[in-house]
Amino acid sequence: MSAPVTSIPTSNGSKKRTQTEPAAVRWLLISIALVFLTLFLALPLFAVFTQAFEKGLTVHLEALKEPDTLSSIKLTLITAAVTVPLNLFFGVTAAWAIAKFSFPGKNLLITLIDLPFSVSPVISGLIYVLIFGLQGWLGPWLQAHDIRIVFAVPGIILATIFVTFPFVARELIPLMEAQGKEEEEAALVLGASGLQTFFRVTLPNVKWGIIYGVILCNARAMGEFGAVSVVSGHIRGMTNTVPLHVEILYNEYNYTAAFAVASLLAFLALITLAVKTVAEWKVRQQLDNN
């Protein structure tokens, strides 16, 4: 393998290098990058929290205690609680089949698993309306049996499963491929059963990869807007998830409440980034150890 990247000169290093830019250029580039990132990333993040607490903590908490807000939080938690385990199970299964075995059509399968990422969220919602909606394929049958999928909770969950479908799988496949299958083979030869091998050998090896996939899957499941917006029907207190509730409050010019609820999601995003950074670091460390 190629040599690891050679140590990079530290900015306070005294040794002269021809392989880097003059200090003035360096600091100019750093400044441009930081100004750009501040304007585009840090400022919006800061603004969410400032707007949320603009009228004080009491108003902030009042907005969160509103019944419609609470029911939207409940729905979002339910959605994530169904979506994440299903996609986790799928991700692990798919990664086992794809990373540990070779078969024809593998690359096509990987491309198909990634498909939901390249579809517009609006289309992700629309396809379920086309199948389960009143004018859809199964619409008349569902109505005859009094089952509601679109403009109800099942539709929201389905659309969320679709948009978060690839997260766990696409994280685990390369990781499990990189780790090979020697350890599993050793366990099996020593008499472990298939499931024992998976839980005692494979799982500890990919633990951080799974955490990484799950945290991203969860963030998207709780934050998805476009797809859910199409299938939800926007019934207040019934089929509104937290992001949809933010939209309603904002469109009612109730900015403080909108940002108070939005700050919950922004806080979730911060936790996600923190866990993701740690998981990324652990995965790298584990791969280096191999």
Binding site: A219, F225, P243, F259, A262, L265, L273
Partner: peptide, 20 residues
């Protein structure tokens, strides 16, 4: 770590914040 914020921040939150 902050570079990934747009991945993690729900789009509706980004939308209302940028608009504001």
């Amino acid at each position: 770590a902050l570079v990934d914020l747009p991945f993690a921040l729900p789009t509706a939150v980004a939308g209302i914040t940028l608009a504001t």
